[in-house]
Design a protein around this nucleic acid. Sequence first.
DNA 1: GGGTATTTCAACCTGACGGC
DNA 2: GCCGTCAGGTTGAAATACCC
Length: 354
Amino acid sequence: MALDFSNIHSLNQFKKNNEKKESRDFPFERENVFDIDLPSETSIYPFFREDFALQDAMFFDTETTGLSHGAGNMVFLAGIGYVDRGKLVIKQFFVSNPSIEFKLIETLLELFANRNIVISYNGKCFDIPVIKTRCVMNGINEPDVEQIDLYHISRFVWKDKLRSFRLVDIEREILKFERKDDLPGSMAPFAYREFLLRGKTELLERVFKHNLRDVYSLFEIFKIICNKNNIDVLFAKARKFFALKEFDESLDILRHILSLEIDDINKKKVYSLAAKCLKKKGEFEKAKKLWLKIRDVESHIELAKFYEHKQRDYNKALKHTEMALSKTKEKTPLFKELLIRKKRLISKSGYFDL
DNA sequence: GGGTATTTCAACCTGACGGC
DNA sequence: GCCGTCAGGTTGAAATACCC
């Protein structure tokens, strides 16, 4: 469902409240509720532990006065999102007066305590370290939160598809959403300064929208990563299981991918990873059948290794080395490596290349 | 422009194997 | 037994990219 900005409350009420002296002692809070399609499953294992429930998590994004993690960088706006009764609730907490930042931090810590899994974008490197620094500066105990960082998961999932992994790039390429009139995050410190010095809220309103969109996008990205039929996500999970040396789990996912409608390119990707799993399991004959289906440079090299070291069939090993050579550009390091392999196999097979 | 999680890549290590 | 080669694994440094 598209994000409806008409749903966003105006800052006018905040301005009115802010004119009253007593309201400056508390962070300004506003809430937006969105109708959503819930993910049918919430497991993102193996990217995060298996026993994880959406009601324990909250989506989190901050706007700060800078990039540094040092004492001078404060949080002035925090957006948190959570699913409640089938709807996405996004609350934004704004510090209208830097002297009450500690109240915002305390509010966040209470929320962290209730929903102790924080889903963010680059939060491991930015948002949470900044919050921890603000805790130290305000004499508050640092929170102990579990984190799901969608930045790193996105890099892993779409590594072959995208070159840039900024949140706006994921929105454009994966969510198919283009921001209009978005205020870049780098303008947030300036917008806050304008508010504090001159009471201007025009730019600040756009920072609120930016932050709201960020939190909403976190939910949307999370939903895609939960999708059990998304080819990119399934491949990524299979790769992750392979990296974790859980080859049977990887093979199960690859079989599931094959049960979906996929093109020949994706089929070869499935065969290639499945062959690697089978090789690790020592099931060389099964792996061989897949390599013979793929017939790219890498699979010919694997077949050459298989025939040389497992079957001691040097003629077949030589044949696959030559096939790999025919598909490789001359003068490349791989070509030179294959020539060495060919020379060795010629020597072993007693074949004379006249 | 600072901090940091992750990825990449090179260097090194280990075990298996064959030739002498 | 020694030496060289290959494949595969481990480790650590460097590079990368993101957040405001």
